[in-house]
């Protein structure tokens, strides 16, 4: 009994249960695909389905990863110090303990986090901000989409403001602590 099973494993590359799970998954997907194929817009649906994965993996991710790399470069990242190397810069506030050397706060996360937040808000609430679907919006609500762009900009300004003030407070605290320990 063990012999054919291990031969199956060597051939297939995983267990029999794995194959059963995969077959079940593709059987259901296949049923849905057959049902959808009757729709006139089936091609568009497929395009959006595959397109969504591609848009995330090959467009959105490279964009935000590159933006982050550029930002780190611009702020003079301490380089690839490796796993043991200690960055002299603290990117995150932390509880202070006696005898611990104070770290100079880094502005990196104070830019990164609000940028991430505003980018996310833009993606999620994009139709309102960019005034897409004006007519269906009017038919459904009796209103226009004018306020959203300004509101999004105001939220963005607020996020960066709060983050900036927080950074300044950390700087001031660091200067004080740094002065007192010297």
């Amino acid at each position: 009994m063990a012999e054919p099973l291990s031969r199956f494993r060597a051939t297939y590359g995983s267990s029999l249960q794995h194959l059963v799970v995969m077959i079940a998954c593709f059987a259901l997907t296949g049923w849905v695909a057959l049902r959808i194929a009757e729709e006139a817009t089936a091609g568009r649906m497929l395009l959006w389905f595959v397109g969504a994965a591609i848009a995330h993996d090959l467009i959105l991710f490279p964009i935000y990863a590159s933006a982050d790399r550029v930002l780190r470069g611009a702020l003079g990242r301490p380089g690839h110090a490796g796993t043991e190397g200690q960055s002299p810069v603290a990117h995150h506030s932390m509880p202070r303990r006696a005898g611990q050397a104070p770290y100079r706060p880094s502005p990196l996360n104070h830019i990164r986090v609000p940028a991430l937040a505003t980018g996310l808000l833009f993606l999620v609430y994009l139709p309102g901000i960019l005034r897409q679907g004006r007519e269906t919006y009017l038919a459904a609500t009796g209103q226009n989409q004018h306020p959203y762009l300004v509101r999004w900009l105001a939220i963005t300004a607020m996020l960066f403001l709060v983050s900036g003030v927080w950074y300044l407070l950390r700087q001031i605290r660091w200067r004080r602590v740094d002065g007192s320990t010297r």
Partner: peptide, 11 residues
């Protein structure tokens, strides 16, 4: 897109 009434997808 649906909750914001922007039926950009065309299906």
């Amino acid at each position: 897109l649906n909750i914001q009434y922007a039926y950009l997808f065309g299906f």
